[in-house]
Design a protein around this nucleic acid. Structure first.
Lengths: 147, 147
DNA sequence: CATGATTTGATTGTGCGCAATTAAATTTAC
DNA sequence: GTAAATTTAATTGCGCACAATCAAATCATG
């Protein structure tokens, strides 16, 4: 290859893509006790922040569509973490709520963010800056995809 | 939620995870002409950099295992972009080589990195710093996962 | 009302992504 | 040389991820 611009090591997006998968792997042992996958853990984070929200709203917060969420939430319902029911105000919407087991799981998950941060080996300032860049790219790219 | 550490917006890893998916979406229209997915495009990048490498070596460069690569490479073989054959030196290894069509596709892909960078709206310095942080996290997390 | 557009969730089909297992080839030890 | 360990790719099974499509409910308009 004569030019450099196609070289893998120059691809900023590849590093994001690969890092996302590696980070997911890093969570795996931490999520074993909860018996959930990383995307399921994210769904729990949303519900712990605000219980009983629609699939639509959860998709908005996680940047995921219903085609991904519906089967995942069904698995979590089977596992006893949450239940789903049609909204009484709007029968088109499905509202997702935590079961007692799902609520109790928050205590179990309490230490996960600390354990994860420990493994990242980044100081507070570096982390803050990195997260700010990441969010900037996320918002910018998401906006591009919407339009 | 009384504490903040579980809040979704504080999760650095979530922003990486979501950004990776959004960036993949950004590539979609750019890859239409090549008729490949983003992971397939990454495989092509590797082969354009070095043709005829083993599945093992490709997995090493892309941080992917054979369970992911084998079926993907088969699809790309069916599409006429590459062919696979057992190594003559080591019959356990499968070597992946570009077809003429796969080689010619490099010209078509030539403008993709520029088009993508345009959409990221980042100046050169910002991009450089961001990629450096990303690579640092990738290497650090990957090392953790290996050990 | 009526009816057409919109919103929403479900369904379907395809493509990763990876853990676990299997099978084959090679390497190592003896 | 032969047996055991190792390396490697393939296979299997499950879980996202998303585009495309469909059906149902609701909303907007006249």
């Amino acid at each position: 290859m004569a030019e450099d611009h196609l070289k893998l090591e120059n691809q900023i997006c590849f590093s994001i893509y690969a890092t996302a998968r590696e980070v997911t792997k890093l969570y795996k042992p931490l999520l074993e006790e909860l018996n959930v996958t990383y995307p399921q853990y994210l769904a729990l984070l949303v519900l712990w922040e605000e219980d009983c929200i629609t699939v639509k709203e959860m998709g908005h917060r996680l940047y995921l569509d219903s085609g991904t969420l519906t089967p995942m939430l069904k698995r979590m319902e089977t596992a006893g973490l949450l239940f789903r029911e049609r909204s009484k105000h709007d029968e088109r919407s499905v509202v997702v709520c935590l079961t007692e087991q799902g609520k109790e799981a928050e205590q179990t998950a309490d230490s996960i963010p600390y354990q994860l941060l420990d493994q990242l080996n980044m100081d507070a300032e570096e982390l803050k800056q990195f997260k700010a860049s990441m969010m900037k790219v996320l918002n910018s790219v998401h906006q591009k995809n919407e339009s």
